[in-house]
Design a protein around this nucleic acid. Structure first.
Lengths: 110, 110
DNA sequence: TATCTTTATCGTAATATTGCAATATAGTAA
DNA sequence: TTACTATATTGCAATATTACGATAAAGATA
């Protein structure tokens, strides 16, 4: 025990949970918000912006990249990271769909 | 170490990360989707719907309740759980806001 | 009352996550 | 070449999460 039970949920449920999990940490939220704030995708400065050591930031960047939330391109000896819209659009759609359905249902039992 | 560094991020970043984290598990995604599927808020059946033992489901329900994603009301000796729209609307707004900004920026550097 | 049903909590084992120092890798620049 | 800069990886300790059996708590029912 301790490992998340994955086999008994649907592919979709596992996929969306994995995507959501990638943003379930304030450091990764902060990284995405920083990439939003700067006008162009920025090379390197992310470590300086966060209150974490360089290896820790690198680890969080890796998780965001694995989840498809950001993408990085090599730019000399630095790496330019920026947001990948596709993953964030998936999250937007997922929550928009839920709240739309809730609007239509107008459940008022609790 | 191992504990998430919370002191050095903003209140907003910590709050949204905590809310997101509540749905960062397929079981909790499945619970919310089940509550969406049934027409009225349902008492008890959640345990039968999930491939997990009763204490485990109870634990996940507690986390969803703590995060404000669901609310439960006592109904005899059973408990009636249903979705709290406010928390899900926050998530909808958060991701809608991000994707809207991305649309406007049209970043195409990577 | 005693029993049943439903949900919560406790205790614990297995696994995952977080964070960082140390080090490695890869490119740039002298 | 050597040194410098930027990022990644390794290894490890601290903490958190997940899962479940056993048990408790609280209301329903006989």
């Amino acid at each position: 025990m301790g490992a998340t039970n994955i086999d008994n949920f649907t592919e979709k449920q596992n996929a969306i949970a994995t995507l959501i999990k990638a943003l379930a940490h304030p450091a990764r939220v902060a990284i995405v918000e920083y990439l939003m704030k700067v006008d162009t995708c920025i090379c390197g400065d992310i470590v300086n912006e966060l209150p974490l050591a360089q290896p820790t930031v690198s680890q969080h960047l890796k998780e965001l990249k694995n989840a498809g939330i950001i993408k990085g391109s090599i730019e000399g000896n630095a790496i330019c990271y920026c947001i990948d819209e596709k993953a964030l659009n998936k999250l937007r759609s997922y929550f928009a769909n839920i709240t739309n359905k809730l609007e239509m249902k107008k459940i008022n039992c609790c």
